[in-house]
């Protein structure tokens, strides 16, 4: 698998004795009380989960917070975990719920409490990231989500359909449409001038 996830796994710190185990085996071990298994899962999915959030809400500190929140949710849900699907699917389903919850709270805070939504408080980034965000923002909400889940989280069509609760064929047709629209957007010159200060700022490692 040549996606962001696989690279994250490859870069993650190996945990002695846990490297050969599958995610599902690790989760079962963790549900039985193995802290090392959780450490291994954390190492594998910390970056992918952070990527999941940071690509969607831009605010790095908030993305960090939601990543931690997702791991806490996993710990709490561990006693009820059953190997009926891929751990990865289960994980992103939880992350998606956390994200939706955050978005709802942020929306209602901004709508009714006049609170600032940190959605646009973009941290240090690079030109590519800005272009991506601009292009993705122009996509339909569901199409954007399908595209991100496929390209970055590497979920299958069936997994995406299950996560977003839409038919499988809809996933396929809308993913194709999203890719086509995105390609046109990315090939066009940018509609507005990008802030040079932001453009030259290097992303912090």
């Amino acid at each position: 698998m040549n996606g962001p996830q696989s690279s994250a796994i490859a870069n993650s710190t190996p945990v002695s004795g846990q490297g050969d185990l599958t995610d599902e085996q690790l989760m079962v071990d963790f549900a039985r009380g193995s802290a090392e298994a959780f450490q291994a899962l954390f190492s594998r999915y910390n970056k992918p989960l952070f990527g999941f959030f940071v690509r969607r809400i831009a605010d790095r500190s908030m993305a960090d917070e939601l990543t931690q929140e997702t791991f806490v949710a996993i710990i709490r849900a561990a006693p009820r975990y059953e190997v009926t699907a891929l751990f990865r699917t289960w994980l992103y389903a939880i992350a998606y719920k956390v994200l939706r919850s955050y978005r709802r709270k942020a929306f209602f805070s901004s709508e009714f409490l006049s609170a600032e939504v940190p959605e646009h408080s973009v941290g240090p980034t690079i030109e590519t990231a800005l272009l991506m965000r601009e292009a993705l923002r122009k996509l339909d909400r569901v199409e954007r989500e399908i595209l991100l889940l496929r390209e970055f989280e590497q979920l299958s069509y069936a997994e995406i359909a299950s996560l977003l609760q839409i038919p499988l064929n809809t996933v396929r047709s809308r993913l194709f449409r999203a890719r086509s629209v995105l390609r046109n957007l990315l090939m066009q010159p940018p509609a507005r001038t990008i802030d040079p200060n932001l453009a030259i700022t290097k992303e912090q490692a």
Partner: peptide, 13 residues
């Protein structure tokens, strides 16, 4: 398109 998307790097968590 996928190739362009794969250039999107994210910061370290």
């Amino acid at each position: 398109t996928s190739g362009v998307l794969s250039e999107w790097r994210i910061p370290e968590p």
